[in-house]
């Protein structure tokens, strides 16, 4: 059977006829399209998992200062507040983990793009912290990662995973959809429930714009990763509870692409609209430009 799926329907068909999970379908997909064997594919994903774990640990171990000086310690603040969180301590810890990775990213630390650097907190934050809370082993997290990859492949093939072409819905939205689907499989759900969870996640942030202040992957990206983590957990819960996505996954992905196309260029990572264009956003960008000029002058005088 051809394992190279291009739509959610095809993926479900493969899972059904081969009686396999989405994670296994993702591995068989990779076996078909790459020159790697099963061991190499597992090894590569293990390396990704290790970097993901390290990035959470690093983010929560001490306070960081980002390239702009704007952000860096919100994850620790969230973690310290976790026991009082209205969303519950467990959810708050997942949020803190997701923010931690994105802060490490903003401070030039090592992360795994999932699917992008700007959205890199959601998948590790949700999967690793959930596994930790429920005493699931690395094998189970790896299954989650393979499952998530299948969803990401479908979105990349039929829409986009980049903020520049589809806005934040395509970037953190995709990461959340991947995490939601992965969580469903890790919790014993069916492939259809995984796709329902992914569809509902994307629906919840349909139209979300990419408007980074001063063009940096900091504000509002880190908080959007926090939202993405909650959205993923929420939708995996809805799917496992038996709630279905009224609009099927493939149609949601196509419409996400179309909505991205309708989005004005100012709202697609160009830092010209949305929050980047607020008085405060503009001021931050101007201050950074001034600082930049100062450093270049300093650099030039060093050369002279």
């Amino acid at each position: 059977m051809n394992m190279v799926f291009s739509t959610g329907e095809e993926l479900l068909e493969i899972c059904k006829s081969e009686n396999i999970s989405i994670s296994e379908a993702a591995i068989r997909y990779e076996l078909m399209i790459s020159e790697r064997d099963r061991d190499e594919i597992y090894e590569e994903m293990r390396l990704n998992l290790k970097t993901m774990k390290d990035s959470i640990k690093k983010g929560l171990s001490h306070k960081h200062v980002s390239m702009s000086g704007l952000v860096g310690d919100d994850s620790i603040t969230m973690l310290e507040f976790a026991s009082q969180a209205a969303m519950g301590e467990r959810m708050a810890k997942i949020v803190a983990s997701a923010m931690a990775v994105t802060e490490v990213n903003a401070t030039m630390g090592c992360i795994v793009a999932a699917p992008t650097a700007g959205a890199s907190g959601i998948l590790p934050g949700v999967l690793i912290e959930f596994a930790h809370q429920h005493e699931l082993d690395d094998e189970m997290i790896l299954k989650g990662l393979f499952n998530a990859a299948a969803i990401g492949v479908l979105i990349a093939k039929n829409a986009s995973i980049s903020g520049a072409s589809g806005g934040c819905q395509a970037e953190t939205g995709s990461a959340s959809a991947m995490a939601a689907s992965a969580l469903v499989e890790m919790r014993g759900g069916t492939p259809l429930q995984s796709l329902d969870a992914a569809a509902m996640t994307l629906k919840n942030v349909m139209g979300l714009v990419c408007d980074p202040v001063a063009g940096l992957v900091e504000c509002p990206c880190i908080k959007r990763n926090a939202l993405g983590a909650v959205n993923a957990v929420l939708c995996s819960d809805m799917a496992l509870a038996g709630i279905k996505s009224i609009i099927p996954f493939d149609e949601v992905v196509t419409t996400m692409k179309n909505v991205g196309k309708m989005m004005h260029i100012d709202l697609r990572e160009t830092a010209k609209g949305g929050l980047a264009a607020t008085p405060t956003g503009i001021k931050i960008a101007e201050n950074m430009a001034k600082a930049k000029q100062k450093t270049s002058q300093a650099d030039n005088s060093k050369r002279d």
Binding site: V4, A26, Y29, E30, I33, S34, I41, E44, M45, L47, N48, T51, S66, M67, V104, N105, A106, T107, M108, G109, C110, I111, V112, A113, A114, P115, T116, A117, G118, S120, L123, L145, F146, A148, A149, A150, G152, V153, A156, K157, I161, M178, L216, V217, E218
Partner: peptide
């Protein structure tokens, strides 16, 4: 056909896959 490691990966120093 993109690889699953184009989706989960690369392992990289942040903050931006394209800018960094």
């Amino acid at each position: 056909n993109c690889s699953i490691f184009d989706i989960i990966g690369p392992r990289m120093i942040g903050p931006s896959s394209s800018h960094t």
